[in-house]
Design a protein around this nucleic acid. Structure first.
Length: 567
DNA sequence: GCCGTTTTCGGCCCGACTGTTTTCAGTCG
């Protein structure tokens, strides 16, 4: 919902202005928390009956949200922005600049935005400020230059291979015992800020040296005894923490986060008269109760083990036991793939062989439909021939079932791109939006609803059509869609391609709550695309998906029965 | 500003690192 995002941005801005003005830190945090809750909210904020039921939303925030819904703005923000130059907000994005420094730059050097900061540096005006030495000024200049070329966050599909490559190299360093990545990467978020790596070693000097001189390092940002930070030529920042062997679990838990999860578990510790930090769980006499493994930490806090993907500070501490979240090995079929018949790079046989090699029992061939001209979509006549080719390949190949399908376009008005008679010949129909991705939410809802309710449609492919960092995609009323999907037994896809991850994590959770089935597919166009499945799994786990709610985990017989379901 | 299984008032995580200082403020995660 765009209004959710817009409102979240307003709360975030209020928080940032308050920070520059030196307001109470907890008041600032309260605004940041509301912003986060709004960003994660699946339901349109305008349809929430009792706003005060949202976590972190109190009396004052309810009033602000209501004001926004009635007028489209919040006066407090315009008032606040009247008291400081609005360009100061941009300065807060500069690494190393915090609220105190930004305020001083403004009041003592007349800096009001990034251009005036640049000229103040060039003109030497900062040098006369107290606590502003050569090194600090040069670091600010570096950060400014970096800000111009850097994008905000990195897609997990880019970050994960980098992290794994670095870990591979560091693991070979003499003395290293444990090494793992933590942070948002371990939690499986769709985009990553920094890569966090934790290690134990008998030679920390050697490990730090190896880390700071890795290929691709453009700047060493921090180099201490236990913490080093580097920036890579791709723009990513990587932090290495060297921790004690017997406190690896405590450190892993702490640096995996999220910050919100850490606060919740720390509160849990305080309630039990314990104390929790990155070195372990302690009693009031500072005796260590647990530290070595994450499992022991959660156990001694009286909690079930909480998988990293659930650690977002939401409802995870209320879990009575560890949920059996879906795993890579649970996936037995891929139900959305392409061949050279449309825009893929593999033949039907090559595709099926690759699926078989990866241990799947079934693969659905779902090439594009006729309207997808750019993707060489199949005319009805070509589809007829393609179905025959798929059936022939299915007979010839052992050890894999090949289903004849189509990824059929959902037109802007909700009609499908083939006649029902043709769709009825297919084993499986994935219906996806590919065009008119900027249509308004009401039209988008009705469009997707028609496809969900179509008796021949099994799966809605990449339901919003978003592409991370490039286009937001459709913004339909998700709760309405999920209710219909549950009623019609139409599965909603998690497209595992790391550019898409569509449905996103919060959608998956809402879909399951509504009783809808989920399908995780790679949308494979080339053999290596099967590797993207891991990102779909992470997104599914973040949405609390268990195998029972995912049709790709069904045995072949059960899948066939499900595909034959009546709507 | 938000919250409540000791609380409607009094908490709200806290340690590492940097740069500038001679003991600490600011930033970050």
């Amino acid at each position: 919902m765009s209004s959710n995002r817009e409102l979240a941005a307003i709360f975030q801005k209020i928080a940032t202005v308050l920070e520059i003005m030196g307001a109470n830190a907890f008041k600032i945090n309260a605004h940041v928390k509301v912003a986060r809750v709004l960003e994660d909210l699946v339901q349109d904020i305008a349809t929430v009956e009792d706003l005060s039921t949202l976590p972190g939303v109190g009396k004052s925030s309810v009033a602000k949200i209501k004001e926004y819904l009635a007028t489209g703005e919040i006066k407090e923000l315009s008032d606040l922005l009247g008291s400081i130059p609005s360009g100061l907000l941009d300065l807060m994005e500069v690494q190393g600049l915090g609220p105190k420094t930004v305020r001083r730059l403004w009041q003592e050097a007349g800096v009001v935005d990034i251009p005036t900061l640049k000229s103040a540096i060039e003109g030497g005006q900062l040098e006369s400020m107290p606590r502003m030495g050569k090194k600090t000024i040069s670091n600010i200049a570096d950060s400014l230059a970096f800000l111009e070329v850097a994008s905000e966050r990195t897609r997990i599909g880019d970050a994960m291979p980098i992290a794994e490559m670095i870990i591979d190299q560091l693991a070979k360093t003499k003395g290293v015992n444990n090494i793992e990545f933590a942070g948002s990467l371990r939690r499986g978020k769709e985009t990553i800020g920094d890569i966090d790596i934790l290690a134990t070693t008998t030679d920390s000097a050697l490990l730090a040296e190896t880390f700071c001189t890795l290929g691709g390092v453009t700047k060493v940002l921090v180099r201490g005894d236990t913490k080093c930070s580097i920036r890579l030529d791709c723009g990513m920042q990587v932090d290495l923490r060297i921790v004690a062997e017997d406190a690896f679990g405590a450190a892993l838990m702490y640096f995996t986060g999220s910050k919100e999860h850490n606060i919740l578990v720390r509160e849990q510790a305080i309630k039990q008269k314990k104390r929790l930090n990155e070195y372990g769980l302690f009693d009031l006499d500072k005796n260590c109760i647990a530290a070595k493994t994450e499992e022991s930490m959660y156990k001694d806090l009286g909690l079930p083990y909480i998988p990293a993907e659930l650690r977002e500070g939401k409802q995870e501490l209320t879990l009575p036991q560890t949920p059996p979240l879906i795993q890579h090995s649970d996936i037995q079929s891929d139900l959305h793939t392409h061949t050279i018949a449309s825009d893929g790079h593999l033949t039907i046989t090559e595709l099926a062989e690759e699926a078989k090699r990866r241990g799947l029992h079934s693969i659905a061939v779902t090439d594009h439909s006729q309207s997808s001209m750019q993707a060489n979509g199949l005319s009805p006549k070509r589809l007829e021939q393609h179905i025959a080719d798929i059936k022939k390949a299915n007979e010839e190949l052992d050890g894999i079932n090949i289903l004849a399908g189509s990824e059929v376009d959902i037109h802007a008005d909700g009609r499908l791109d083939y006649e029902d008679e043709l769709l009825a010949e297919l084993d499986i129909v994935v219906a996806s939006p590919h065009s008119s991705l900027k249509q308004d939410p009401i039209q988008a809802t009705s469009r997707l609803l028609k496809a969900i309710e179509h008796p021949l449609v099994h799966i809605i492919g990449h339901p919003t059509g978003r592409v991370l960092g490039k286009r937001p995609g459709l913004e339909p009323d998700m709760p309405t869609l999920f209710a219909a999907a549950a009623a019609c037994q139409t599965a909603m896809e998690i497209n595992a391609n790391s550019w898409r991850l569509d449905l996103r994590d919060t959608h998956v959770h809402a879909a399951i709550q509504a009783g809808a089935m989920i399908s995780i597919n790679t949308d494979t166009h080339a053999a290596s695309d099967f590797d993207q499945l891991r990102y779909g799994i992470l997104t599914a786990r973040r949405g609390w998906l268990i195998p029972e709610n995912c049709i790709n985990c069904f045995s072949f017989d059960r899948l066939l029965a499900w595909l034959g379901r009546s709507c």
